[in-house]
């Protein structure tokens, strides 16, 4: 066990937090476990791949395009599909987004084959030296982006007028509606934002690692674990939980060998859920 192991664990956790951020936002605002979140992340990876191959853009040059497309997709998704489902209760939301996830996997498999893909970028193989330790540049970037986005979102939600509208719509949609807030519009913007966050995560994940049409499941599972451990509606909690999950995974590998790393993470997930259902940092502002 040394500083490098702990630092790398934390950085991996930063990537987890980034993947979980959009899920956390939707869970907090719409009270919806978006089972299609993993598909949004992987969809962005495939979108960037398509752009890099078609117009020979680097993944990061493709990023703005992918983010905008994802946001539009998220907005349309909420307006055309999810709103109607959510009116029917949370069950319908879970089942409907699950249906979307199945459709997404089918679309990736038929559009891109089942083979593993990866986004190539010089960032993936670059490193940063701090003192005696070498850190992966892409993970440092992912963690920095996760911290920055969390800070912007958390401040935006707590300090701005748009943020208070979002909080009002989240905590009591009916009353918010009476006060003249267009709740449907607010929800659609929230899902658009979440899809954009998922897109950022997807591109960075695709650069750092690789993806297949069924990668969405493992991404969704780790994101759900992170969101629940951090506390629902608590974006700062999501960031902290992401880092914690990465750290615990690294420590478990150091202590018990690699075989138990999944087990440790899911056990942590289960224990936090039953001991402190509101998450490590408690319910958030949303």
């Amino acid at each position: 066990m040394n500083a490098t192991t702990i630092l790398n664990g934390l950085l991996m956790g930063g990537l987890y937090a980034l993947v979980a951020l959009g899920l956390s936002l939707v869970f907090g605002v719409l009270r919806l476990i978006n089972l299609a979140h993993g598909v949004l992340v992987v969809g962005a990876s495939y979108g960037a791949l398509e752009l890099t191959q078609l117009v020979h853009l680097g993944p990061f040059a493709a990023l703005p395009v992918v983010v905008v497309v994802a946001a539009c997709f998220g907005y349309g998704l909420q307006r055309l599909v999810l709103t109607n489902l959510l009116l029917k209760g949370t069950e319908a939301g879970i089942v409907g987004t699950f249906g979307l996830a199945v459709l997404g996997e089918a679309a990736f498999a038929s559009g891109f084959t089942s083979n593993g893909q990866s986004l190539s970028s010089s960032l993936a193989t670059a490193s940063i030296r701090i003192g005696g330790t070498t850190l992966e540049a892409v993970l440092v970037v992912a963690t920095a982006v996760a911290v920055a986005l969390t800070a912007v979102l958390a401040l935006g939600i707590s300090r701005t007028r748009a943020g208070s509208v979002l909080r009002a719509a989240a905590s009591d949609p009916a009353t918010a509606e009476l006060m003249g807030i267009d709740v449907r519009q607010v929800f659609a913007v929230a899902v658009a934002l979440a899809a954009a966050l998922a897109a950022v995560a997807g591109v960075l994940y695709g650069v750092a690692s690789s993806f297949t049409p069924t990668s969405d499941t493992s991404l969704l599972l780790i994101a759900v674990a992170v969101v629940v451990v951090g506390g629902v509606g608590n974006l700062t909690g999501t960031l902290v939980a992401g880092l914690a999950v990465g750290l615990v995974q690294a420590l478990s590998v150091g202590l018990f060998g690699g075989g138990y790393s999944d087990f440790t993470v899911y056990l942590l997930f289960f224990l936090v859920l039953v001991v402190r259902p509101t998450g490590l940092l408690g319910r958030g502002a949303l």
Partner: peptide, 25 residues
């Protein structure tokens, strides 16, 4: 049984994942 609604669903998910990861070892 301490959990309700979505939390119960997520709790069963976590339990299932942990059990699978354990049986693998």
């Amino acid at each position: 049984l301490r959990l309700h609604g979505d939390y119960f669903a997520v709790g069963t998910l976590a339990a299932g994942l942990a059990l699978e990861a354990w049986v693998n070892n």
